[in-house]
Write a protein that binds this DNA or RNA. Structure first.
Length: 102
DNA sequence: AACATGACCATTA
DNA sequence: GTAATGGCCATGT
């Protein structure tokens, strides 16, 4: 792993405090990739490990993004709830309350 | 080397 | 409030 933006993304995501969440755009910005929010999503999708709290990363709508393959989107929600994050009646997270602000 | 695919965001109408 | 468009990069074939 001598390369790539991915490492920067993983680094930022790893720095997300427990009980809080961050949006892809925010991760990209903190990782030094303003506007490259996509890469963040791809990086997480390529990730296949628990070394990074990827479940703390959500889309700009404050909702969990559906992933390919499907069937595991609920795992992310369960994990967030386990950390103290609550979802509203629309299955969304109030970013005004849980958004990670470095 | 080229083509196709993929957890997105911001702007504009 | 929704709908559509452009932009960006890494990975695998």
């Amino acid at each position: 792993m001598t390369s790539s933006t991915y490492q920067d993304i993983y680094a930022v995501v790893s720095q997300i405090p427990q009980g809080q969440v961050a949006t892809y755009g925010q991760i990209a910005l903190l990782a030094g990739l303003p506007g490259h929010a996509r890469q963040v999503g791809y990086a997480l999708s390529a990730l296949n490990d628990a070394s990074v709290p990827w479940h703390r990363v959500i889309n700009a709508k404050g909702e969990i993004s559906p992933r390919s393959g499907g069937g595991h989107d609920e795992l992310q929600r369960l994990r967030l709830e386990a950390e103290g994050v609550r979802f509203d009646s629309c299955d969304r997270i109030p970013l005004d309350r849980y958004r990670w602000q470095p």
